[in-house]
């Protein structure tokens, strides 16, 4: 997930850096406003937890394993402002201690994982919760959907940044985005599953720890409108992720297919295994890859909702004391 230096152009790095700086600055401002003395140890601990939680491996296939990103988890437990700050610090320390992710790309990374993950994830969760209710089921289902949407929105944003970074003559972006989106829909499923199971575990063991949801959803009307806007933005970006492969530039579909069929002639020599496979993909008509992406999108969406429903069912009925505990 981490973007290294050199992937995005300096201008894009500067722009995303400026946006992230504003967003994180606002988060710090809100954090300072909220009751002071407990937030610092809580946020610091949350940041350390997300950092450590990213070390837990989730095996996918034999060599491949995924890990938690944690933006939605952090926002669910400590709220969007502290969650955003915690995620930002995690990303910063990952650069400063392990040189993971780039320095100039830090702005983009913060925007993708901290701002979209915490602000966006929080807004989407509350948006979903409005339909399901503030019960435990609502929290789990909301956070599962939010985790998935935040990863897809980040992928869409990355596609946009990548498109702006390089001249369109260099490569055909629609194919890169196809790869990117199908890859991230897998990552998003993993993130949704991990976040959902972890949150339902905490809800079962210590429900009072995740108590912010009720208090926060009773905000002023301006806050509600802003949150709805943010949620709408994230959902729009999620949809945009599946549309991004259609954003073709110069080469039209037929040309692309011809290029793909031609590859035998000049390229099998160097990387035989991979490219031969790629070549044998049946190409009945030009739009096959767009259709593949649409299927990935629909399948992914369905899988997330099934997942959310199953997790919601797996939870025991909420004890009556929860609403009081949450109302405090």
């Amino acid at each position: 997930m981490h973007i290294q230096d050199g992937v995005l152009s300096p201008v894009v790095c500067a722009a995303t850096g400026a946006i992230s700086l504003g967003a994180v600055g606002y988060s710090v401002h809100r954090l300072k406003q909220s009751v002071g003395d407990r937030t610092i140890p809580l946020t610091g601990m949350m940041a350390a937890l997300v950092f450590a939680g990213q070390m837990v491996n989730f095996p996918i296939g034999a060599p491949v394993s995924g890990h938690l990103l944690g933006g939605v988890l952090a926002a669910t437990v400590v709220g969007p402002w502290a969650g955003c700050v915690a995620m930002t610090l995690v990303l910063f320390v990952q650069w400063a201690l392990f040189s993971d992710g780039g320095l100039f790309a830090l702005g983009a990374n913060v925007l993708h994982m901290a701002v979209i993950g915490s602000w966006g994830g929080h807004a989407v969760r509350l948006f979903v919760q409005r339909f399901i209710g503030d019960s435990r089921k609502g929290i789990v289902v909301g956070s599962v959907v939010a985790a998935w949407a935040s990863v897809m929105a980040a992928a869409a944003l990355f596609c946009l940044e990548f498109r702006l970074s390089w001249p369109p003559s260099e490569i055909d972006f629609s194919k890169v985005f196809t790869l990117m989106v199908s890859f991230h829909s897998l990552i998003g499923l993993g993130e949704a599953l991990i976040t959902g199971v972890a949150i339902s575990f905490v809800l079962n063991q210590r429900p009072e720890l995740i108590s912010g949801s009720r208090r926060l959803s009773r905000g002023s009307s301006v806050e509600t409108i802003t949150r709805t806007l943010v949620a709408g933005l994230v959902i729009a970006l999620t949809i945009a992720a599946f549309l991004s492969p259609f954003a073709s530039n110069d080469a039209d579909g037929l040309e692309a297919v011809l290029a793909m069929l031609n590859i035998d002639l000049n390229f099998t020599g160097s990387v035989p295994g991979l490219l031969e496979d790629y070549d044998k993909v049946p190409v009945p008509f030009a739009a096959w890859q767009s259709i593949a992406v649409s299927f990935a999108g629909i399948g992914g969406t369905l899988a997330v909702f099934v997942l959310a429903w199953l997790l919601g069912k797996a939870l025991p009925a909420a004890p009556p004391s929860l609403s009081e505990a949450a109302g405090e």
Binding site: L49, A52, G53, V56, N57, F58, L68, L73, V77, L193, I194, V197, A198, I199, F201, V202, Q205, L209
Partner: peptide, 9 residues
């Protein structure tokens, strides 16, 4: 693994 994360949390 997810329970590990939850317990750690």
């Amino acid at each position: 693994a997810a329970h590990l994360v939850g317990r750690l949390l």
